[in-house]
Computed example of a mutant assay.
Amino acid sequence: MQYLLMLYADESGWGRMSPAEQQAGMAAYTAYTAALSKAGALVGSNRLQDSDTATTVRLVDGKPLVQDGPYAEAREQIGGYYLIEAPDLDAALAWAARCPGAGHGTIEVRPVWEK
């Protein structure tokens, strides 16, 4: 079964880190991604641009209403994701706990509807 691991964090935190801390953070994510790949669990992943680049769309009276900015104001923003293959929720949660983002933010784990 596939699970989406959504990584939430305070996106301003990266800019407050020293170059050495940023390099260590990138190395941690590189190692995590490699472990997922080696285990055959990685389906896809990507980092997202900051929330101030977001655009939201909703229908109002049948017409699209397009607005700049994220859908909800929050202290933490979604900064990236991993789409993984795992045998069950417990395995997906174990992968989420290993994600470097769990140490400085929140990892939301959500099953993907099967076709």
Rank of each mutant, 00 (worst) to 15 (best):
D50G: 10
G69P: 02
S51I: 10
V57A: 09
L7V: 15
G105E: 02
G69S: 01
T55A: 15
S51K: 08
E73N: 06
Y32W: 14
A92G: 12
Q2F: 11
A102D: 14
D10C: 05
L5W: 09
A27D: 13
E76K: 01
G80V: 04
A72Q: 09
E11Y: 01
D50P: 11
P111N: 02
E76Q: 09
T33M: 09
I78M: 12
Y29V: 00
G44E: 14
P70W: 08
G101E: 09
P111Q: 08
Q77M: 12
G15N: 08
I107Y: 01
Q23A: 15
A91P: 00
R47G: 14
T106V: 15
A86W: 11
E73H: 04
V66Q: 04
G103R: 15
T30R: 07
A34T: 15
A41I: 02
W113S: 03
A34N: 06
W113K: 02
A92S: 04
L59A: 15
Y71S: 07
P87L: 02
L7A: 02
A27G: 11
I107M: 08
M17Y: 03
V60I: 14
V43Y: 00
A96D: 08
G101D: 10
A31V: 13
W95L: 09
Y81L: 15
A72F: 13
L36T: 07
L48K: 08
G79L: 03
K63R: 12
I78Y: 02
Q77T: 14
S45N: 15
A35G: 15
M26D: 12
G15K: 04
W14D: 05
P111C: 07
T56E: 07
W95T: 13
L5A: 09
R98N: 11
E21S: 10
R58Q: 11
G25A: 06
